[in-house]
C-alpha cells in the first residue's frame, strides 16, 4: 500500500487500508481494550456521580508521566502510581452521598490542582519532556506498540476481574447505602476499592486518549446507556457497544482525515450522547417522561421505593 490513504465508498477496501499498517492495528487493539474497560468502569462511575473524582484521577496521568520522565522510569508506571496515590488521597472522602459533600469536593479539587502543579513543576525541571507535552494531555493512538497492547490487556483483565468480584455489593451500596450498610456490606471499603479500580481504568485509558480526553470514553457511553435503560446488565452491554463505536469511528475517521484522533473521539462521544438523549426524549413522548424515567428510574428499582 503506497501513498496517502483515501476514503472510498467501498467499505472493504477502506477497512483493508485501515489495517494495512501495524501501528494502526495496534491502535485499534488498544482502543478496543480501553473502550471496553472504560465503558464498564464508567458505568459505575456515572451511577455513583463521581465524574469529578474520575476527572481528577484522569489529570493525575499528567504529573505521573512528567514525574516518571524526570525520574527516568517508564511512563506507564508513573501513570498508575500517580492515579493510585490520588485515589488513596481522595479516599473515602468522595462518597457520593450528601454527607459533608461540600468539603469533599474541595478535597477533590485540591488534590487535582496539587497533582497538576506538581506535574508542571516536573515539566519545568525537565525540559526534554516538553515536546511530548500535548501528547500527554491529548493522547495519541499512534505510538502504541505491541508491548503496550499486552500490558493494557493484562491491566484491563485484572481491573475487570476486581470489579466483577465486587459488582453486586457495589451496586447495592451505590443505590442504597444505608440499607446496604445495615445488611453488612462494607460500603466505606467499597468506596476506596472502587476509586482504586477507577484509577486503574483511567490510567489505562489516558495512555491512549490523553489525560484530558478520558471522559469521551468514561462518561459518554455509560451516560448514553443509562439514558436508555436503567437495568444493569443491558446497560453495561449498551455502554460497551457505544464505547466501541466511538473508538472505532474515531480512529477510522482520524486515519483518513488530517485532524487529531482526540478531536474525533470526543466529537463522536458528544454526538452519540446528544442523539441518544434526543432519541429517548422523542421516543418517550416529551420532556416530562424523559425526566421521570431518568431521575426516578432508580428509585423504583431500589428497595426503598415502598417505604
Amino acid at each position: 500500500m503506497t501513498g496517502n490513504p483515501s476514503l472510498s465508498l467501498d467499505l472493504v477496501s477502506d477497512v483493508r487500508q485501515l489495517v494495512a499498517f501495524p501501528f494502526m492495528v495496534n491502535a485499534l487493539e488498544a482502543g478496543t481494550i480501553v473502550a471496553v474497560l472504560a465503558a464498564i468502569v464508567g458505568w459505575y462511575m456515572v451511577l455513583r456521580r463521581q465524574s469529578f473524582a474520575g476527572h481528577t484521577l484522569a489529570v493525575m496521568a499528567f504529573p505521573g508521566a512528567a514525574g516518571a520522565a524526570l525520574a527516568g522510569l517508564p511512563t506507564a508506571l508513573g501513570y498508575y502510581v500517580a492515579c493510585g496515590a490520588a485515589a488513596l488521597a481522595m479516599g473515602g472522602r468522595s462518597r457520593p452521598t450528601m454527607r459533608g459533600y461540600r468539603t469533599e469536593t474541595a478535597t477533590i479539587g485540591t488534590v487535582q490542582t496539587v497533582g497538576l502543579a506538581a506535574g508542571y513543576l516536573f515539566l519545568s525541571l525537565n525540559t526534554e519532556v516538553l515536546s511530548g507535552f500535548e501528547t500527554l494531555l491529548f493522547g495519541t493512538f499512534l505510538g502504541v506498540t505491541q508491548n503496550h497492547v499486552l500490558v493494557l490487556l493484562a491491566v484491563a483483565v485484572v481491573a475487570l476481574a476486581a470489579l466483577a468480584l465486587v459488582a453486586r455489593p457495589l451496586l447495592f451500596a451505590t443505590l442504597d447505602r444505608d440499607v446496604a450498610e445495615a445488611s453488612g456490606v462494607p460500603a466505606g471499603a467499597l468506596d476506596v476499592g472502587f476509586l482504586l479500580i477507577l484509577s486503574v481504568a483511567v490510567a489505562a485509558t489516558s495512555q491512549v486518549t490523553g489525560a484530558l480526553l478520558v471522559f469521551a470514553l468514561l462518561v459518554a457511553p455509560p451516560a448514553a446507556a443509562q439514558a436508555i435503560t436503567v437495568r444493569p446488565l443491558p446497560g453495561l452491554v449498551l455502554s460497551v457497544a457505544f464505547g466501541l463505536v466511538i473508538v472505532w469511528l474515531g480512529l477510522g475517521v482520524a486515519y483518513f482525515s488530517p485532524y487529531p484522533v482526540g478531536f474525533w473521539t470526543t466529537a463522536f462521544a458528544f454526538g452519540l450522547y446528544v442523539v441518544v438523549r434526543v432519541g429517548v426524549f422523542v421516543g418517550r413522548g416529551g420532556a416530562r417522561a424523559a425526566w421521570t424515567t431518568r431521575r426516578g428510574g432508580w428509585v423504583v428499582a431500589s428497595p426503598r421505593a415502598g417505604s
Binding site: F52, L212, L213, F215, A223, T266, A267
Partner: peptide
C-alpha cells in the same frame, strides 16, 4: 448535572485539540 458537564467539557477540549492542530 455532572454528567452533562463531563460530556460537554470533553467535547470542548476535543475542539481545543482541533484548534491546536
Amino acid at each position: 448535572d455532572d454528567v452533562v458537564i463531563g460530556i460537554v467539557f470533553a467535547w470542548i477540549l476535543g475542539i481545543g485539540l482541533l484548534l491546536i492542530t
